[in-house]
Amino acid sequence: MRMHPLLTMTLQRLGFGLLTLFAITLLIFFAIELLPGDLAQEVLGQSATPETVAAFRERLGLDQPPVQRYLAWLGGIAQGDLGTSLANGREIAGLLGARLGNTLFLAAYAAAIAVPLALVLGLLAALYRGSWFDRTVNVATLSSISFPEYFVAYILMLLLSVKWGLFPSIADIGPDAGLGTMLYRTFLPALTLVLVVTAHMMRMTRAAIINLLAQPYIEMARLKGASPMRVILRHALPNALAPIINVVALNLAYLVTGVVIVEVVFVYPGLGQLMVDSVTTRDIPLVQACCLVFAGIYILLNLCADLLAIATNPRLMSRR
């Protein structure tokens, strides 16, 4: 029996994704291995006696050679065991779970605003290219992408929180907060992220569509009497989807993995902040786990983008 081409492709890409993830585990583990200083010494402090340090090392298995420790770590991951935190001895999987949920919530919140906004602005800019609207949107999005995100974050905080008191400056979400409250309290970090990612997606949408407008089939659509809006939505957009999907996926991945600074600025209990905290406490297994989760999400989103881009192309879909 012959498999559907999309299914074959999915399996193939999934295989490549796993391979990439494996390469990343190597990178993460040995890069951290290269960090200067001795972990046990750092954790126990200057006053620790050589005996306690040695005992600590033995308990953590740090006296084993790196390759063996790597294999043990990899074996654990394969079975879903991310190890325990050095700082408090708790299961890392449990620690990550709640934080990852928060990060995904914030990313989804920002994406729900940014993606439609970017697409609509990009389409309109392409439709009215060269007009004042096009120029304004271009300048505005370019400026927002040119500022570092912590700068945008503090400006928003200053205006919307300190001056006008519209939104809280600290995105403190308790376990019992309802959806409305959560959306309200995380509005500023979400807005910061929206401002940072919209420009890229919007500009790609505009460029991908304008690129196609010189195609003969666009002229043919015009000669059939199609309105400019119809030409763009029905004739240009379907053919521009592949590059747009790719940029959207890259930005979604950035929303999840690039939030570290925004989470820290707004004291938001997400994965990024957890990672920063664990770096300061030298909680290496936790740092590794965070890196791995980020990498996995990155790969997964790009995989989805590839598959979607293929699914929107009838040429690739029907090839056997």
């Binding site: 195609q215 003969p216 002229e219 009497g225 379907p238 053919n239």
Partner: peptide, 24 residues
């Protein structure tokens, strides 16, 4: 003018392969 195009005056181009939209 758009109301005339395609309805009362139509166009057949040289390269049909380039003038058909590949997505439909």
């Amino acid at each position: 003018r758009r109301a005339l195009r395609g309805k009362r005056i139509a166009y057949v181009a040289q390269s049909a392969a380039a003038n058909f939209n590949p997505a439909h």
